[in-house]
Design a protein around this nucleic acid. Sequence first.
DNA 1: ACAAGGATTCACT
DNA 2: GTGAATCCTTGTA
Length: 202
Amino acid sequence: MTWDLTAPVWEVAPTLLGAVLSHGPVSVRLVEVEAYDGGNDPASHAYRGLTSRNAVMFGPPGHLYVYFTYGMHWAANIACGPDGTASGVLLRAGEVVAGVEVAHSRRGRSTLRDLARGPGRLTQALGIDGSLGGAAVLTGGPVRLSPGVAPARIEAGPRVGVSVAADVPWRFWITGDPHVSAYRRSPRAVSPTAATSRGSTG
DNA sequence: ACAAGGATTCACT
DNA sequence: GTGAATCCTTGTA
């Protein structure tokens, strides 16, 4: 028994916390995720419809949507919703629970805590890049998602780095976990008034 | 074919 | 805590 990824993405996202994502020798326990609701969500890459980049999100759930951003970083999402619905969950941060040495060698100079703390760092630690886009994570491919230790407590708050709909509390993290990335509101975010919560301090 | 923007990270102070 | 670097994707002509 695994996950029902066809449920609304904001319900699926928190259930991924504590799960373990593995690629080769490296495994990461997810501690922070964000939900994106496709066509209904102005912050989603799929908001404007199907393109060659976001096509994976429109397909069946359980596949990896990997995209390149800021000219240097890869970010990984798990496509959710039934086939034809373009929702997804962005994997923002995790704790490396296996293959620490490999992850560390990929990350170069980095503390244990920072190995997968942040979307770009997470993909780098796992060795995930665009070539794995579209890979299924629940059916025994190179990248696998498996159940882990359920988190004791979960918090929700505004999403990070999103310039629109930043007030929707669709960022989920494990309360008090040191591997959650530092909260940093998008420099392009509109209203500076609503930001109160802080991710890493718990 | 061209121009604009981005779901970030790193090094330095 | 703050500033700078990077190139791919998308929409429009």
